[in-house]
Amino acid sequence: MTCAGNVSMCEPDATPQAGRPARPPFIHIGAVHKAFAARQGGELTVLDSIDLDIAENEFVSLIGRSGCGKTTLLNIIAGLDAATSGRIAIGDRPVTGPGQGQGVVFQQHALFPWLTALGNVSFGFRKAGLSREDRRERSLELLRLVGLEAAANKYPREMSGGMQQRISIARALALDPQILLMDEPFGALDELTRIELQQELLRIWQARRKTVVFVTHSIDEALMLSDRVVLLAPNPGRIKRIFEVPMPRPRSRTERAFNALYDEIWSELSS
C-alpha cells in the first residue's frame, strides 16, 4: 500500500462525497453540469454533477488529465462561462458573471501586449473609481509586492515568462479579489522560476488572505501549495477523489508524507 505512515488522506472520508471542508463553505458548487455542442452533432459533457465546497482562505488545487474540464470549472467559478445546470455561489450570492470578487490569473500570454507592466496592473483598477494618481500609486505598490517595481515601464514582450506571470498576479490582485482563480499560471515556466513563483504565491496568499483555486498539471505543484487537491477524471469531467494535504507549510518535497501522497495521487490518476 502507498498508505505508509499515519496520514489523514488515508481515512475513508477522503472520497468525492466528502467535498465539504470543516469550515463553512465560501465557494459553493452544487451539481454543476456543463455540456458543449459536439462537432458531429449531439452533446459533449465536459462537467458532470460537480459538487465542491471551498472554505474561505482555503487553497484548493484542481488536477487531472487534459480534457477533464478543470479549466472549464475555473471559468465557471470566474463567471466567464455559464454552467448548463447546477448552482454556483460565492458567499451567499449566486455567480452571474465576473466581478463578484474573483480575480483570474491565466496561462501565459494573457497580459495586454500594448500596455506596460504598470499599465496592465493599473488596468485592474479601472473599475475602482480611483483618481489617476491613486491608481498609479496602488499599481506601483502591487508591482512592489511581486518584486517588479523596476520593470514598471516594460512591455510584456520585453519581459521573461516568469516576470509576465508575476505581473499577471499583480493585475489580478488589483481587484482586491476575495478569490484568486489561477489557470495553470506557471505551466509554461522553467522549473527554477516555477519554484520561485510558487513560494511567492504562498507568501502573497498568506499575507493577503485570499481563497485560491489553482488549476495545474503538476502533482508536485499541487502538493506544495494546496490545502486540498481535487482530482478530476475526464469523459465526462467529474471529481474522482479529493485529497487533504495536512503537512504544515513550508513543505519539503523530500518529506515522507509528501511522497506518500504523491504516489497515491499518481496511482489514482493512472488507474
Binding site: 465576473p98 466581478g99 474573483q102 491565466f106 496561462q107
Partner: peptide
Amino acid sequence: VDPVLVRAARSFGL
C-alpha cells in the same frame, strides 16, 4: 483577437 485577452478583460468586468 486572442480569446485569452478577451477573457482576461472580462474577468475585470469589461
